[in-house]
């Protein structure tokens, strides 16, 4: 599963895209599962109060189903200008 990271999520994880091994991503059924998984591995992601998620370039909620071939993007608000 390919996860594109933007803004502070990229800074926290340290790279983008993040490629999850098939064995790990197989258990992730929904966007919510993925968020929980990522927060477990990168606890600072858990401190973000506002985080948009897109699946295949479309904004979705936590209950959206995801699969191995989907491209996920984590999009936090950005502040600068």
């Amino acid at each position: 599963m390919k996860i594109l990271l933007f803004g502070i999520t990229r800074d926290i994880v340290g790279e983008s895209p993040l490629q999850l091994p098939r064995g790990e991503s197989a258990a992730l059924q929904t966007v919510g599962d993925l968020k929980t998984y990522l927060k477990g591995h990168y606890p600072r992601l858990g401190t973000l109060s506002s985080l948009a998620v897109a699946v295949n370039q479309k904004y979705t909620g936590d209950d959206a189903r995801i699969g191995e071939e989907d491209e996920i993007a984590l999009i936090p608000p950005v502040s600068g200008g």
């Binding site: 904004y59 608000p77 950005v78 600068g80």
Partner: peptide, 13 residues
């Protein structure tokens, strides 16, 4: 997109 304003300091400027 982002319903709630993040806490101060959460997102660096």
């Amino acid at each position: 997109l982002f319903p709630e304003m993040p806490a101060i300091g959460e997102i660096p400027d």
